[in-house]
Design a protein around this nucleic acid. Structure first.
Length: 624
DNA sequence: GAGTACCATCTTCACCGCTG
DNA sequence: CAGCGGTGAAGATGGTACTC
């Protein structure tokens, strides 16, 4: 791993992936494997690991492009790169989103005096693309391991000592623009161990859940709004070098809409209403909101423009939430759009009792507020009781997650050095693909979407002479989740393991080697520039989706386990690679800034709150 | 029937930006 | 500047289609 200013670490594994006597890990360290030499670039004899300061690479930055282009040649190539459109004229990686499913246009009819306002009409909001996400560390883990409950409650301000230390002086985020990857630390996590000897894997992922403050609750905002200015620590580069070297409606509208029920459409509208109809979807996203606005006489185009204030995905999402509320109201005998506040609160309470996360409940409330007529000129969400309810929910529903990794990194890395993943040259395309994507995910700590955006186009993927290093950039058309956060991935090849015979052997865990092999093999059948393509018919050679990429990662982890005769832990998630890789990196001394830069987090708080795992926990230490 | 992939649905992360 | 409302979008998951 490297951060663009530091050399990639050079883990020293044997050809089997095991660490030789020269490895930077010793039995006496933490986990019995951590060496106090971690964080340094080892050269020479084991006992004389010298610190090698490498000249920092010049980081170039292109306006509007990805951050951190660390190599002049890269910059040149980058400036000349062109988007890589597919045959259908769209860019790879789903950048130009196609309507995954246009809402079927159906007559919008309703009872009331405004029927003519909402008729058969093309939906302006047809491009729904509600995508949602369940981040791995959301704390649904139910296995409790020990009696020592470590809770970081939202009401506590001293829950995370590190947070305070990490928090910028003004409570702002630490703008991090440098790029780096985490491969070195990651693969160093694969410490020397006695294979499965005394391993207590059952304890994995069974640690006490930890409650961390719900975003926004009792904790300062990450201050990302000001995150445009990189604010690197003055010596972060040096640190990285050393460490890496080791390895709304108006009141008028609402008042107008809030007409007496007698003037409004009713549920029994004989099919001519917009009232809740279980299973019947509106012709457009947030049709209720549309009707509410049309009722006060707003022109159709104006309404369309107003509704366009939100992305189609958000409208689609709110529409779904509103339909859920409509159905719930129907079952309870209420009129969804003008029900009393108590009904709304009861609905939200139901969500709490279903153990929905606070953020989920928040979205439901926003959706309801958009479609509900409101109370005395205010939206439903502005009602005093609703405000207090939400405050209570925030306290009652802190984000909790396990501090212990769900899966054992060392086991997985070990598995990747065995059949069916090795020998790599003989491995089938499936296993080669799985191994490559997993190594890449672990080494870069990137989101699946970031990996999905990688391309084999020469302007995006550059191998350095001797396959000593690879620079990966996402397709130029790729829009990351956090705009401006997407950085290129720079991975330096791992050196061959030291063998007594002096024979050069490939490092079986080298991401560069796996990537090179994968690209060479996939070249024969690939039909797209996207890095990862399907290996099986009938989609062979076509770009895989992000979801499939997630499946690959999970399957790779599971296979690594089963290939060793072990049972893979349940609940594996591709996103877990981020938490695990970065936690190991932190554990091994990587600065928080470098970690955030690599993982594209604008604030260290994000890492601490949602991802950080206790990889040094005794259970893991003993297990590994 | 197994394997692979896509689509639709669902949850909630991660952030922006306003307010007091 | 802490707190929080609001928003966009990502990942997980289940269902289903297709091929072999």
């Amino acid at each position: 791993m490297r951060n663009g200013t530091a050399p990639l670490a050079t883990p020293d594994f044997s050809s089997t992936g095991r660490i030789d006597g020269d490895c930077p890990f010793t039995e006496g360290g933490h986990h019995g494997r951590m060496s106090d030499r971690l964080g340094r670039y080892l050269r020479g004899s084991p006992g004389e690991g010298s610190l090698e300061q490498r000249p920092p690479a010049v980081a170039h930055k292109l306006p509007g492009a990805f951050s951190g282009v660390p190599h002049p040649r890269t910059l040149s190539a980058f400036s000349q790169r062109t988007p890589c459109p597919r045959e259908d004229g769209q860019y790879d990686h789903n950048i130009v989103y196609k309507p995954t499913r246009g809402f079927a246009l159906s007559p919008v009819t309703h009872a009331g005096t405004q029927t003519d306002l909402v008729e058969l009409r093309p939906s302006p909001l047809s491009e729904s693309d509600a995508r949602t996400r369940v981040i791995e560390p959301r704390g649904r883990l139910t296995v409790q391991r020990c009696t020592t409950i470590c809770r970081l409650d939202s009401t506590s301000n001293d829950c995370e000592p590190a947070v305070g230390a990490l928090r910028p002086s003004r409570g702002r985020s630490v703008g991090i623009k440098r790029k780096c990857s985490l491969s070195a630390f990651l693969f160093n996590a694969r410490s020397k161990r006695t294979v499965r000897c005394g391993r207590a894997r059952a304890q994995l992922a069974s640690g006490p859940p930890v409650r961390v403050p719900t975003p926004g609750a009792d904790t300062p905002n990450s201050g990302q709004s000001e995150g445009t200015a990189p604010r690197n620590g003055p010596d972060s580069s040096a640190l990285a070098c050393n460490v890496l070297a080791v390895g709304d409606l108006s009141v008028a509208v609402r008042s107008a809409v809030a007409a007496p029920p007698a003037q409004r459409h009713t549920v029994s509208g004989g099919g001519d209403d917009l009232s809740p109809t279980p299973g019947a979807h509106g012709p457009m996203d947030l049709a209720r909101e549309w009707y509410n606005m049309s009722t006060v006489g707003l022109p159709q185009k104006v309404i369309n423009t107003i509704q366009s204030a939100r992305a189609s995905s958000t409208r689609s999402l709110y529409d779904f939430k509103w339909r859920v509320f409509e159905e719930w109201c129907l079952q309870k005998g209420h009129t969804s759009f003008q029900c009393p506040v108590g009904v709304i609160l009861s609905f939200l309470q139901d969500l709490i009792e279903k153990h929905r996360a606070f953020s989920t409940i928040k979205v439901y409330l926003v959706a309801i507020a958009e479609c509900h007529v409101g109370f005395e000129g205010k939206t439903a969400s502005q009602h005093p009781l609703v405000c207090r309810f939400m405050k209570g929910a925030r306290r009652l529903l802190p984000v909790s997650r396990s501090l212990v990794p769900l899966w054992d990194l060392t086991v997985v890395l070990d598995g990747l050095t065995r059949t069916p993943f090795e020998p790599l040259e003989e491995a089938d395309m499936k296993h080669l693909s799985l191994k490559t994507v997993l190594l890449l995910a672990l080494a870069s700590a990137k989101r699946v979407s970031d990996i999905h955006a990688l391309s084999v186009h020469p302007s995006c993927t550059q191998f350095f002479p001797g396959q000593t290093r690879v620079l990966l950039k996402p397709n130029p058309a790729f829009i990351p989740k956090v705009v401006g956060s997407c950085t290129s991935i720079d991975i330096v090849a791992f050196p061959p393991p030291l063998c007594p015979s002096g024979e050069q052997q490939p490092n079986l865990l080298c991401p560069v080697r796996a990537l090179r092999t994968y690209m060479d093999r996939s070249k024969e059948f690939r039909r797209n520039d996207q890095l990862f393509v399907s290996w099986a018919n009938p989609h062979k050679g076509k770009p895989v989706t992000k979801q499939r990429l997630s499946h690959w990662i999970v399957e790779a982890i599971a296979l690594a386990y089963t290939s060793q005769g072990l049972q893979a832990p349940p609940g594996l998630r591709a996103h877990s690679t981020r938490g695990l890789a970065t936690s190991w990196a932190l554990f091994k001394g990587v600065s928080i800034q470098d970690i955030c830069a690599a993982a594209s987090w604008s604030s260290p708080l994000t890492f601490v709150r949602f991802y950080r795992l206790d990889v040094s926990a005794p259970s893991v230490a003993h297990a590994v």
